[in-house]
């Protein structure tokens, strides 16, 4: 069941016994109908399952919303982007950007270090984290962003993204960290754009209109 965007910061989910949803804890704004909330532990069967999630810090407290009714979701006034996943490729993002998604979707934690030590160090340095969350399956996801997210379509081209403005991506994409650290950065007189994510391939990259992390 797709989510309806009530406005740029709020989505409405229709919940039925056949289609429960998983949402970030504390993101419920209000509801009508016979709806109950149940705390669950965010991540599914990733590398190491729950233990891996706890280790990685990618274990966002989530809750299941069940029953019959309509529920409004929003979080701290952040902007919301609704994506429809067709199941062809997973959505890659950070766990705390997931506002709400269909309970039928699976989430797993991916260790960036598997891409080599270079990528792992890159993750640590950009604040992107060593782990990201993959969302698999067919269904709807609502992502949080600061200032609103916009899609960049890639057709074999490459795009450079500020790591702080990166929200997530869908498709056959490779993410690489480009560091141009010179003497000026070391002494604190750099442009502030020393690190960039170089994203190439076929798919969609979501970028937020702000460099604020949360």
């Amino acid at each position: 069941m797709p989510f309806e965007e009530v406005n740029s910061k709020v989505v409405r989910a229709r919940v039925s016994p056949a289609s429960p949803v998983l949402a970030r804890r504390g993101a419920m704004l209000g509801y009508s109908g016979q709806v109950t909330f149940r705390p669950v532990h965010g991540q599914g069967r990733g590398i190491g399952g729950i233990a891996g999630a706890a280790l990685s810090g990618e274990s966002n407290p989530m809750m299941a919303t069940e029953g019959q009714g309509e529920v409004l979701y929003g979080y701290k006034g952040l902007h919301v982007t609704v994506l429809e996943l067709d199941g062809a490729a997973p959505l890659v993002c950070e766990a705390d950007r997931l506002l709400v998604h269909d309970a039928g979707l699976q989430t797993s934690v991916q260790f960036l270090g598997s891409g080599g030590i270079k990528q792992a160090i890159g993750g640590a340095m950009t604040g992107q984290g060593l782990f990201t969350t993959n969302v698999h399956g067919r269904g709807s996801v609502a992502l949080l962003s600061h200032g609103g997210a916009f899609p960049l379509q890639l057709n074999g081209t490459q795009v450079g993204v500020d790591p702080q403005a990166y929200v997530g991506h869908v498709g056959q994409l490779t993410v690489d960290l480009a560091a141009r650290v010179g003497f000026r950065d070391v002494v604190g007189r750099g442009s502030g754009e020393a690190f960039q994510l170089r994203i190439g391939g076929y798919g969609t990259v979501y970028v937020q209109a702000s460099e604020q992390k949360f």
């Binding site: 910061k9 709020v10 804890r25 705390p39 929003g74 979080y75 701290k76 006034g77």
Partner: peptide, 23 residues
């Protein structure tokens, strides 16, 4: 606890004004 266990319950007739939750 996240505070999700506590809600304001409205009954009767009228209109409720909501916003996205703020900091």
């Amino acid at each position: 606890a996240s505070g999700e266990e506590r809600q304001y319950d409205f009954t009767g007739t009228g209109t409720i004004l909501l916003q996205s939750s703020e900091v």
